[in-house]
Design a protein around this nucleic acid. Structure first.
Lengths: 134, 134
DNA sequence: ATAAAATCTACACTTGACGTCAGGTTTTTC
DNA sequence: GAAAAACCTGACGTCAAGTGTAGATTTTAT
């Protein structure tokens, strides 16, 4: 009788799904895309995840809200969890991060422009209402 | 011999597509979703558009970049081109615009948070490189 | 020890936002 | 007036990001 596997703080897919607020099917899907992998799979069996998987899924959700595709996320997600080893890897990481920074700044700019437009429209409609009423 | 129809500054779908930088199929699709309609269709025939269609398509593209779905766009696009008539319509318009404003502010906030994180990561990696080199 | 719950793989289906293709009509150009 | 170009509709294809379902196995609870 070999010792049971989920030694310390490992959880199965159902718990991870609940904690991260996604379906277990989504987790399977993300695994296939290389976004996430179980810390181990005993035999031909169940996936076991650690705490990192939860924050990883949260990070994925955050990046999605910023408009990155799952493929793009796959290409950067490890930066948040692995220290790049080797100077070459680090330079590559830096490149990617700088690209992300530039895109983010661009997005912020666009949003600010849009915000101004929306405010203008609000003012215009408020004015119309005031005139119709007064 | 009835007078030809495209009297003044009307254009056909091909010209509109070129000017707005989308395909004609996209225009058909948008029409089906109620995002856009030709100013007229003579007989069983061609669609004719006016200048407004160009700016309308540009506005649609801008809203898409902000992450709105075509359905959501359909529900607000008219605000940019029709002056709401009747106080009830205007109040509704105001509601929608205020919702958009709030969402935009939220997005800007998130982006700023994200930006800060990216900068931290850049600093971290730069530090690693410096240490590895020095 | 057995039933219920959780998980596994694999394949099919869905939705949004188009693109492609086929077959037919209309306009434009030579 | 005939060929070429533009346009029409409708059906099907595609890609991303999942969701659903079936049938089998494993784990957990009683």
């Amino acid at each position: 009788m070999p010792a049971p596997k989920q030694s310390k703080d490992l959880m199965k897919i159902g718990d991870l799904a609940r904690r991260a607020g996604v379906s277990h099917r989504t987790i399977h899907y993300y695994e296939r895309l290389g976004l996430l992998r179980p810390v181990e799979r005993e035999g031909v069996g169940y996936r076991y995840f650690n705490e990192e998987a939860v924050t990883r899924l949260e990070k994925i959700a955050a990046l999605k809200r910023l408009g990155l595709s799952l493929d793009e996320i796959a290409s950067v997600i490890d930066l948040y969890f692995e220290d790049a080893t080797g100077i070459r890897g680090k330079r590559r990481v830096l490149e990617i991060l700088r690209g992300q920074l530039a895109r983010t700044d661009q997005q912020i700019l666009e949003l600010k422009g849009f915000r101004a437009e929306v405010e203008e429209n609000i003012a215009r409609v408020e004015d119309l209402i005031r005139k119709a009423r007064g």
